[in-house]
Every structure is written in structure tokens, then in C-alpha cells.
Amino acid sequence: MLSAERLHKRYGAHTALHGLDLTVRPGEVYALLGPNGAGKTTTINCFLGFVRPDGGRALVDGRDPALDPQGARQALAYIPEQVNLYGWFSGRENLAYFAELGGHRYRKAELGGFLTEAGLEADAHDRPVSGYSKGMRQKVGIAIALAKDARALLLDEPTSGLDPRASHEFSELLRRLSARKVSILMATHDIFRALDVANRIGIMVGGRLIEEMDAGGLSAAGLEARYLNATLAAAPAEAAP
């Protein structure tokens, strides 16, 4: 569903992606771990068509976002790290707006259903978003993704700043989406959340996918050790001229 083939991206003298190969199959949750500047967000932006790769290609359901960005985005839902919404609209109105942008028009009850499924309390549905916490806005972002009914979901640091309960609810939601055969690519620093929800985990450093592993059977300590080894091993190479 999502695949990157020898994806290469440079920003001036800095190479953000070095021939990245990656595949996320239907129903799979793929967690992309890596330090800041590893290329995780650039990878997601290539799938979204927000940046154009200098080499290789990203494919979303067989469509190249560099050539057909709107077609690729139709098949995608995206939740950024900060879900910034229109503060003078309520959660339900924001959802209706973004859903209509995605080509869907829902009735009020249906919109409420998406918000509830995303974990937003019913009494908050019609309150202005300017009074929402970050977690509540994140839930509206999830509801927007649910309403889009997309076959793939891209998440950029989705649990950053969420409290443990909200993070747990978020993991539950991802599992439900995975069961519906939605392909999920999640860029994150959160090793525990990656282990909790992902089927496969990739560790990126300096624009390269250093290690890729199945999440099954891994412990948090084991994953942390492999993450640290991978990032420390790559660090001298990064520092070299």
C-alpha cells in the first residue's frame, strides 16, 4: 500500500534521505523510529507529495505523489504532530470542514460518531476548539482521518505531548484501524508506543533505514538497546566529512 523505492532527497548540501526502501502492507502498523533530523518527517512528506524526491519514488496505492499528488492524497489520511484547527469552529465543525475538503459530507450524528470513536467526549463536540487541550485537538485530527475513510494513514509524532491515557486510547484506535486493513506509517520517538502498537519497526539515522525488525517478541529494553546501538553506530559516520 505504501512503498518507498530508493527514495533520495537533498536540501541544499544536506542529504535528508539516502535511497530509502520501505514498504507498509495493508493492515500493517509500521513505526519509524529515529533521532531528530533522521529523515522521518521528510519520508512522510514524500508520501504526501509535500516535497518532491530528487531520486527514487514513493508510491501510495500504486500512485506516485510526485506525479499525481491529489490522487495519492485521496488514498491517504494524515495526522501531524500538532493538529492545528480553526479555533472559532467547534470540533464537529472542524471535522465537517475537513471531511468536505476530502470529498465527504456527513450528517451531524455521523460527525459525532467519528469524534466519539476518536475518543472525544460528547460534551466537547460543539465547543470551540480554541478551548481544547492538545490531546483533544489530536482526537479531532484522528476523527478527520477516520472520516476520510482512507486506506493508508500517515502519523508524524502523533502521541507527542499526550497523557498516558490518551496515548493508550490512541494505540487502541490504531489497532482497530489496522484490523480494517488500513496501512499505517507512524514516525515517532516513543519506543514504548512503537512497541505497543506496531507490527514492524524501522530505525532511521541520517536518512538511512539502519535496521528493520518485527515487533513481535521484542521487549522495550531490547528495542531501546537496538535503537541506541544503531544511532551510536551511525553517529561517527554522520560526523565524518
Binding site: Q70, R73, Y78, I79, P80, N84, F98, G102, G141, K148
Partner: peptide
């Protein structure tokens, strides 16, 4: 500026 452009653009309209 507010960071909502990504969410906006990802919905499938230019």
C-alpha cells in the same frame, strides 16, 4: 504559520 496547511493539503484538494 499555524501549521494547519499540511492537514489542509493532505485532504485531497490543491
Amino acid at each position: 504559520e499555524q501549521g494547519s496547511a499540511g492537514l489542509l493539503a493532505s485532504q485531497g484538494r490543491t
